[in-house]
């Protein structure tokens, strides 16, 4: 659990940390689309150097990014493997029944590998430099047109922000209950699978119970402070769009143009 870097915030002072979350989210979406434009060496080189540049801007060490890729490496290699084995065309290096390793297969595998890693790096840059609550605000804003379709975007955003707020508490509590049961002689991660499953009961039941109590408390608190569902609420948290955010989106547009030209 501690190893997963994707989706974690690293406090910092970089230019990216101070960007509007909406700009970062939009840039992220654009990036995911234009990654598929990288279909030759030139485009791939352009995209890789761009990603490298953005990672430098974030001020977070490269080790952190590499750690972010590590848990996903098997998934990536598996996809690459399938590409290499089942894609045909060009010189054939190996042929056995339905399995062929061809020139095009290998090339494609390399592309897939790079696309994957670039997407992970780029999205990691966003989550590392944006507080979860800012991401929620950004998503809320970008989704707010959906309110016209009667999607309760406001309530979803509130729900998300409250969940984010309580993650540290939940982690704390899990640690506490685990310690308490350890002190009563439970050994985690020992013995057969069945035995290990059994050790989870004394953790999950207390956590479930305390979460219920917490939810009840919270519902009371929210009600007393005037919250009703379906209410039109104003928003205290402000998002401010700066020139640098516009610049970022212009850069993304130029990048797209460059990729199209080089293709």
């Amino acid at each position: 659990m501690n190893k997963l870097i994707l989706g974690r915030y690293f406090p910092g002072e970089s230019v990216l940390h101070y960007m509007d979350p909406r700009a970062k989210l939009l840039a992220g979406f654009i990036f995911i689309f234009i990654v598929f434009l990288a279909s030759n060496w030139q485009t791939l080189a352009l995209l890789t150097s761009f990603t490298f540049f953005v990672m430098c801007l974030s001020g977070v060490s490269f080790k952190v990014y590499l750690r972010g890729v590590r848990p996903l490496i098997w998934l990536i290699l598996f996809t690459v493997f399938l590409q290499v084995l089942f894609r045909s065309g060009g010189t054939v290096y190996f042929d056995w029944g339905p399995i062929t390793i061809s020139h095009n297969g290998i090339i494609n595998g390399v592309y897939i590998f790079f696309r994957f890693v670039l997407i992970i790096f780029f999205t990691t840059v966003i989550t590392l430099t944006t507080k979860p609550i800012e991401l929620t605000d950004g998503i809320y804003f970008l989704l707010s047109p959906l309110e016209k379709l009667k999607v309760p975007v406001d309530e979803i955003a509130l729900m998300l922000s409250i969940s984010l707020r309580f993650i540290p508490n939940l982690l704390d509590e899990t640690q506490k209950v685990m310690d308490a049961q350890r002190a009563r002689g439970t050994e985690f991660g020992e013995g057969s699978l069945l035995k290990q499953m059994k050790t989870l009961v004394p953790i999950f039941l207390p956590l479930y119970e305390s979460s219920l109590n917490r939810a009840e408390d919270m519902a009371n608190v929210m009600e007393v402070r005037g919250y009703q569902s379906g209410l039109t609420r104003s928003n205290f948290r402000r998002l401010t769009w700066h020139t640098k955010d516009t610049l970022a989106l212009v850069t993304m547009a130029l990048l797209t143009l460059g990729l199209l030209l080089l293709q």
Binding site: M222, R225, G226, Q228, L231, T232, R233, S234, F236
Partner: peptide, 9 residues
Amino acid sequence: AFGLENLNM
């Protein structure tokens, strides 16, 4: 601000 947001202030 939570209570104030609820008043749509």
